[in-house]
Design a protein around this nucleic acid. Structure first.
Lengths: 334, 334
DNA sequence: GCACTTTACACAAACGTTTACAATAGCTTT
DNA sequence: AAAGCTATTGTAAACGTTTGTGTAAAGTGC
């Protein structure tokens, strides 16, 4: 139905080879006159290139696939904007795939969709790949890089913040404001990221001569619900004066639950969030945060894919952003 | 580098035709014995199918492209989940493309990425296509459907809520609670969607014998900032007792700005949001909303693409969800 | 006017699949 | 035992491109 270069060739009275060269702007391969004819023919036929066919013969693709896990937290869009920006600079296209939350089967489908087609590389945003799917990915021989997630033993390529620093910096910020009883809410301890944040948190406290009571750390999956649950566990008469939320969502969960328990933020309880997405400034009071540089992660991810030699890991900077959810503690409360 | 069916054919000692048939499970075309051999060969070679090549000859694709505009508001993920669910039911894959906000060039790139490749159809989520890009889309001959956006004159296929009803229902809900001075904040009047909402709003007031003062309607682009700006325009001593936010984001903008102006929600000002995404329950007080059924839009969109005969438009239901941001007005305030 | 280079184009193979058609072998019928 | 099936497999064309090689015509230098 749709016009092909064959149709153009016929209409312009040249060979398909010439058409291809003209359309690809391979100058010094054709005269201005034929270029004219070809362009005209293409225009009247409403020609649309079939890039898939072209990629088949050139054996190279210009599309980057970004695989995201369904957004329990919401930083993905910032990473994607970074990816888009850098991709555009190098004339690459970006397609995005949803891989669901923890459903290995859905992950597999997303992965297959891109592996079976020509893509130049795969970026995985905070997706914790099931073992069999990781094998799939590696078998595909395609360049790939994990973003905003880290791994312990295996030497997988990833780009993320220094999660130990994240935990440390958040905790230290609260210590600096005079807090000494500090919780950590909604963090996950099954994966490397969460474990590192806990370690950073613990170390900061230790440096200040404080030992975290076991119930100060409430585990969870970084979600809003996890934050709520954690705060419910702390209770209305908690001895804590501050809480580190494992993510923006978790911090909001903590904050809303605290309010429901009759605790005002930051008067009765200070909160600091980890991530620093736009959500932090949407809520009231706005949330002080340890902000990750998601945009740069996206950029670095694309660069990683383009690089011949993969240097396997990279750390992006973090930054404390002061907003309204942390109160300076002068004397002792309680 | 990667193994092809040719390699499998050689290893298994059969023709590529047979390999293809075995791998495609075209039963009754081969014996169990050869199937065995082929499968084994495929496994040892780590064969990955090149679907692009297959799609080239079969001239049909199993992927649906969803084009989203960068998320100023955030309902896209719900629509996408609907798309995914329905697509999965029919063995279709989904890829997502970012088309930016209002940058025609970025739109074009996103569109081209999919038009030039084999896709079975295109879903456009709330993207307001530049005229030249619409032409591009239509030239491609691909099935397409707009979601969560409507058009006036042109007969384009779209699926969305009844925007007049949305405006009407939100306003009526406030009238039912005794409000009579009601603003509309952050709505856009350049496009059909916004105009319809304004009309519904105006009609509801009119039915109650109220004429909206010109400054009750504050135009904007549905964003958080638009909500803030609107509220700033109303001012601290506004005579309004309630405001309809044009989107969840806009409503939050109104609410936070109101608080900054010293107005408590809902005590001093009631707010109702349009969209009803999860954001509504994240903020405090949670936002009463006219909720759209985004998930169903996604489902309907996929069905539309699959349908032979396109019935061009479809309306999905809406629903009032009561939360905490609307106060019942008994006597008159002011 | 010869040898040589350049310019401008066409031919045809290749990319990795699917599938219509042909071909072979073994059975069944008669 | 000839004819006709059926089951299984192979051959080769096709999808829409790109690109190496070939070649005729035109231009250049002597």
């Amino acid at each position: 139905m749709a016009a092909t270069i064959k149709d153009i060739a016929k209409l312009a009275g040249v060979s398909t080879a010439t058409v291809s060269r003209v359309l690809a702007h391979k100058t010094a391969f054709f005269s201005a006159a034929t270029a004219q004819k070809v362009q005209a023919a293409a225009a009247t036929l409403g020609y649309q290139k079939n890039t898939a066919a072209a990629e088949l013969v050139t054996r190279q693709s210009h599309v980057i696939a970004a695989v995201v896990n369904s957004t329990k937290t919401n930083f993905a869009s910032q990473i994607i904007e970074g990816i888009q920006a850098e991709a555009h600079r190098h004339d690459l296209n970006v397609i995005i795939l949803y891989a669901g939350d923890a459903d290995a089967e859905q992950q597999r489908r997303a992965l297959m969709t891109v592996i079976e087609r020509p893509v130049m590389g795969i970026l995985l945003l905070s997706v914790d790949l099931a073992a069999e799917n990781l094998t799939l990915l590696q078998q595909s021989q395609l360049p790939y890089c994990f973003l905003s997630i880290s791994f312990d033993g295996e030497r997988l390529p990833y780009i993320t913040s220094d999660d130990w620093q994240v935990g440390y910096l958040a905790t230290q910020a609260l210590l600096d404001q005079g807090h000494r009883r500090i919780g950590l809410a909604g963090v996950d301890s099954d994966f490397h990221t969460g474990r590192l944040r806990v370690l950073g948190y613990t170390q900061a406290l230790k440096n200040a001569g404080i030992t975290a009571a076991p119930d100060w750390i409430q585990l969870g999956n970084y979600s809003y619900a996890a934050g709520q649950t954690a705060m419910r566990a702390y209770g209305a008469k908690t001895s804590l004066t501050a809480v580190v939320g494992a993510s923006d969502m978790a911090a909001i969960g903590v904050m809303n639950q605290a309010r429901d328990l009759g605790l005002a933020v930051p008067t009765d309880l200070s909160i600091i969030a980890i991530d620093g997405t736009e959500l932090c400034s949407l809520v009231q009071p706005s949330l002080t945060s340890v902000s990750q540089n998601f945009y740069e992660m996206g950029i670095a991810g694309v660069q990683q894919l383009r690089a011949k030699e993969a240097l396997p890991q990279k750390i992006t900077p973090i930054q404390l952003v002061n907003r309204q959810s942390v109160r300076r503690l002068n004397g002792d409360r309680k």
